[in-house]
Design a protein around this nucleic acid. Structure first.
Lengths: 348, 348
DNA sequence: TTGTAAGCGTTATCAC
DNA sequence: GTGATAACGCTTACAA
């Protein structure tokens, strides 16, 4: 074939015996004033040379890169990867690419990523924000930089956010537990020290749901702690007098800790402990026992995030930023079941 | 603050009262001939204006984008997301970004992605290749386009590949099964119609290991079929006379199907059926029963892939492309255990 | 209907 | 030590 030299628009122009602008017109489908002849000649030249436009050059000129950044807080959550998948899918349909970044819950990393992404002229970002970079987000927002938050939001930063209705998720769990006869309910989730929105909302929603259902609130069974501290916390909880008889796991990692603890300590689910997990983890439907979960509509959430962002990028943005809440759905399985026989403790 | 106008290198030059070239020198740490004075003035200007270099412009000039593409065959496999995570981690250390693409096992999609990535001037790609785009890979390779294959390789395309020692993985399983007294061994994995390397290698390795261990080969228990057909295939297998007493699941999705089937049909693992899964899935350690698995060193594999690619990009490539095989490790858990009591069927 | 030329924000060459 | 100037490959007024 030809030499290794990359073929540019000039080469095509030369070969077709027209000017660069004409080729450019052709490439951008501006055929209005183009002669049939030229069109054909250009088409032929493009074909023969195997020409591929250089998008970087185009980006420089047009100040747009058809690329967006996705910064996940922690890629270890199944939820994160599902969102990434969904966003990628929607973007692909619009011929956008996504640069995936994993902030690992580190605000410094997050900041560095944002700066790099902007330097690369990505057209916008979807981010699971840490609460500690508020100023950064505020300044981006002031510049009207296209951005959407997902899973969490940052107070006082007027940016659209895609969120689960977390309070609803908790109340769904509480109601299911009580309906089935569990009485001493607890919730365990990751550390709340950084005010990560969903954790706070799930915990608060949990307490409220207890109150609404006139259930006793056991403060010591409401825990937001680091994953590493889970074994200890669970041990404390489960060896106390009047230990909880049902536990809501705030996310996949929390659920795993609960299941491990139960397994290691011969606590049988659902008899000794009812369990519900937020996030419909991959193994829920075939775990023994099958896990009752509260699912987030990840596919739709990712799609909505991508859609909102692309709309901002294309200047067909919704009127004003808002928090979009998505409905959680309870998927009943077998990790919490009817506890009617609870009184007859003598049965075993 | 300043107007919304983006600040460029010219602005910095003006503000510092020097030329663009000097600023550029400064930005690229070429201090050799730079006066202390100018250095300081430039630094100050950069600071005050909050200047951020435009990487797109730089890319255009330097023909490098510090971005690589990662095309996964199917992002639904846990293995894929772990590789992505690991690659991202290593790239981040070298200040590279990754564009993630999900080919969904579709060669057309894969091709389109590759073209788009090249148009975006990504410096190289890491790809889980489909075998049907051989010509494309060959031509990329002829141009010396930086590329590394992972999980699979394409015959006759001389590109480095990161692979599991799949034959070893299968033999590890066969040996474990036989050591524990299982006798009628089977393997189930995804469809082999497209000659996807690991599936073929795992199946072939399985047969070979059976032969080496003088075990009987049950052809009908060696299946590479579409995931959707698993329930039917498993049903056929498990209801046949002399049904298999142990099954190796070729990957995470296959394992899930086996576990579901067992669960739905009251087949108890490991008593009725020994199970080993290739890929140390997230739930293996706390499933009931805990699943014996054969783990791929995903972290190292991803890192090696990234390293090889960046080496090619930086022109410090290894002498010649080769297939790098990684050792699988057997993680013994409880989904296959001593079958000594098999003869005394009367025990229960 | 098509061509000319300027410009996007950098970097690199080579004078001064 | 520093500064003009051209160049990267494309788009886009505007001219022809």
């Amino acid at each position: 074939m030809n030499s290794n030299k990359v073929v540019t628009i000039s080469d095509v122009a030369d070969k077709a015996g027209v000017s660069k602008s004409t080729v450019s017109q052709y490439l951008n489908n501006r055929f209005e004033y183009m002669g049939e002849q030229t069109k054909l000649r250009v088409a032929e030249a493009v074909e023969e040379l195997g020409y591929q436009p250089n998008i970087v050059a185009r980006s420089l000129k047009q100040k747009t890169s058809t690329t967006i950044g996705v910064i996940v807080a922690n890629i270890s959550h199944e939820f994160s990867t599902e969102i990434v998948r969904s966003v990628e899918k929607y973007c692909n349909e619009s011929n956008f690419h996504i640069i995936v970044c994993n902030a690992e819950d580190d605000p410094e990393k997050e900041k560095k990523y944002i700066e790099m992404l902007r330097a690369k002229q990505v057209d916008g970002i979807i981010v699971f924000p840490t609460s500690t970079n508020k100023e950064l987000y505020q300044s981006l927002n002031l510049e009207n930089y296209p951005m959407v938050f997902i899973d969490r939001y940052v107070p006082d930063v007027n940016v659209s956010a895609i969120m689960l209705d977390n309070a609803k998720a908790s109340s769904l769990a509480v109601e299911e537990f009580t309906r089935l006869g569990y009485e001493r309910l607890g919730i365990v989730t990751n550390s709340t020290v950084n005010n990560v929105t969903p954790r706070i909302e799930r915990i608060d929603g949990f307490s409220e749901a207890l109150a609404e259902n006139q259930l006793e609130i056991y403060e010591s069974y409401i825990k937001g702690v680091n994953i590493e501290d889970f074994p200890r916390e669970l041990e404390n909880m489960m060896t106390s007098r009047d230990r909880p008889d049902a536990l809501l796991a705030g996310n996949d990692l929390a659920l795993i800790e609960v299941l491990k603890y139960a397994k290691n300590n011969q606590i049988s689910i659902p008899e000794d402990l009812g369990v519900i997990g937020i996030d419909d983890v991959s193994f829920a439907s075939f775990y023994n026992p099958e896990i009752t979960t509260i699912a987030q509509p990840t596919e739709e959430m990712g799609e909505k995030a991508a859609k909102l962002l692309l709309d901002q990028i294309m200047n067909r943005a919704e009127s004003s930023p808002q928090i979009h809440r998505f409905e959680p759905t309870l998927i009943k399985r077998l990790s919490c079941t009817e506890q009617g026989g609870k009184e007859y403790e003598g049965t075993f």
